[in-house]
C-alpha cells in the first residue's frame, strides 16, 4: 500500500483584487472583487514507502501548496489524501508525530535562543524518551557536524548552519515521512552538497519516504530517482529524471578545439549542423540535435584538423527550464501511470 495517496486533490484560493487609489480602497470597504486562484487542480499521486521523490515545477505551480495540504497546514477545496493512513488536515496528533516538514525559507527554531533549547522543547512536545532523544541528537549533530554550535543563539548561525539545525529539529522524532520544501535555498555549493549528502545517507539508512521540492537540479539529480513535475496545479510528468531529459531535450552541446584558426568557410559548414553559441577561435561551441551528432563529427573530423572534441548533455537546469516552459504552454500532456515506463524510454512525450 502506498504511504502517500492523493486523489483529485484541489485547492482554490480566493484572492482579493485591490485596485490602486483611494477611491478603490474606499469602494473595497463595501464591495470587493475576488479572483479564484486554482493552486492545485485535482492531482492524483501515489508514493510508496522509502521513495525519494522530487516535486518540481515553476514558481506558483502548486508544489508548496501540495506539501502544505499533505502536512495538514491547510484544508483542500476538494479531493482526498492519506499519508500513513491519516487524512492530514484532520491534524491528528498521532499523524503529526510521524511526519515532518522543513521549509527552507522559514524558521521554526527560536531565533534568540540556542538551538539546544528548541530541541528540548521538541523533546517534550513529541514526548521523546530522554535516552532516545539524546542518541538521536548525538547522531544527527555528528552527521551534520553541529556539536560546537548547539549552545549558540540561532540568530548567530550562518544560513547553512541554520538549515542543518532545522533539519535536526525536524528529524528528532524520527519521522517516517519527510516533506522538504526547498531545503537548500540560498545556500552556497558546499553547504548544498553537505545537506544533499546528509539527506542521501539518512534516507538510505532509515528508509524514510521523502518528498522534496527544489529549484536546484543538483539536489534532484543527487537524491531522487523519481520526478513529478507540476505546473498550473496539475501533474504533467511522473517518471525518472533520465526519462524526462531524453524525452524533452534532443540537444547535445559540442565543443570543438581546432588546430588552426576558424575561418568563414568552417563557420558556415558548422552552422549547417546546428546553432553556434560561442566562438573563441580556435575553439567553438555549438548546439545540435542528437541525431545529427555522428554525421557532423564524421564530416568535421574528415575535413579539418581537430585537437579535442567534447560532446555533453545540456545543463540540467536548462533542460528543466525547457520542460517548465513546455508544460506551462501545454505542449506536454498530462501523463497517467500506464505511460510511466514509456516516458522513461523517451517515447512518452
Amino acid at each position: 500500500m502506498a504511504i502517500i495517496e492523493i486523489k483529485g486533490l484541489e485547492k482554490t484560493y480566493q484572492v482579493y483584487q485591490k485596485k490602486e487609489g483611494l477611491r478603490s480602497s474606499l469602494r473595497g470597504l463595501f464591495s470587493r472583487e475576488y479572483k479564484q486562484v486554482k493552486a492545485v487542480q485535482g492531482i492524483d499521486l501515489q508514493i510508496e514507502q522509502g521513495e525519494f521523490v522530487a516535486f518540481l515545477g515553476p514558481n506558483g505551480a502548486g508544489k508548496t501548496t501540495t506539501l502544505k495540504l499533505l502536512s495538514g497546514v491547510i484544508h483542500p477545496t476538494s479531493g482526498t489524501a492519506t499519508v500513513l493512513g491519516y487524512t492530514p488536515w484532520q491534524r491528528d496528533n498521532e499523524y503529526r508525530r510521524r511526519f515532518a516538514l522543513v521549509m527552507g525559507n522559514k524558521n521554526q527554531l527560536w531565533w534568540d535562543l540556542p538551538a539546544q533549547e528548541s530541541f528540548r522543547l521538541h523533546q517534550q512536545i513529541y514526548r521523546i524518551e530522554a535516552d532516545v532523544f539524546q542518541n538521536t541528537l548525538d547522531e544527527l549533530t555528528d552527521l551534520l557536524d553541529l556539536q560546537d554550535l548547539l549552545q549558540q543563539p540561532v540568530r548567530e548561525l550562518s544560513l547553512g548552519e541554520r538549515m542543518k539545525m532545522e533539519l535536526t529539529a525536524a528529524l528528532l522524532h524520527s519521522p517516517e515521512v519527510l516533506f522538504l520544501d526547498e531545503p537548500t535555498i540560498g545556500l552556497d555549493v558546499v553547504a548544498q552538497h553537505n545537506i544533499q549528502q546528509f539527506l542521501k545517507y539518512y534516507q538510505q539508512k532509515r528508509k524514510i519516504t521523502i518528498l522534496l521540492t527544489s529549484h536546484y537540479m543538483k539536489d534532484v539529480a543527487a537524491l531522487c530517482k523519481r520526478v513529478v513535475i507540476i505546473a498550473d496545479g496539475l501533474i504533467k510528468y511522473d517518471g525518472s529524471l533520465e526519462g524526462i531529459i531524453k524525452s524533452t531535450d534532443q540537444r547535445k552541446l559540442i565543443t570543438l578545439q581546432f588546430r588552426d584558426a576558424i575561418d568563414d568557410s568552417l563557420l558556415a559548414a558548422l552552422k549547417k549542423f546546428g546553432n553556434v553559441t560561442d566562438v573563441e577561435t580556435p575553439r567553438i561551441k555549438l548546439t545540435v540535435t542528437r541525431d545529427v551528432v555522428p554525421r557532423m563529427l564524421s564530416t568535421i573530423l574528415d575535413g579539418y584538423q581537430v585537437d579535442d572534441v567534447v560532446v555533453e548533455d545540456p545543463p540540467l537546469e536548462d533542460v528543466i527550464a525547457t520542460v517548465f516552459s513546455e508544460v506551462t504552454a501545454g505542449r506536454v500532456q498530462q501523463i497517467d501511470d500506464d505511460e510511466f515506463e514509456s516516458i522513461g524510454d523517451g517515447q512518452g512525450l
Binding site: R91, N93, L101, K106, Y126
Partner: peptide, 17 residues
C-alpha cells in the same frame, strides 16, 4: 507571515501552543 504553519505541525493542542 505564515510561520503559524509550524504551530499546526506540532502534536499538541494548537490553541495551547
Amino acid at each position: 507571515t505564515g510561520n503559524f504553519d509550524f504551530a499546526l505541525l506540532k502534536p499538541i493542542d494548537t490553541q495551547f501552543i
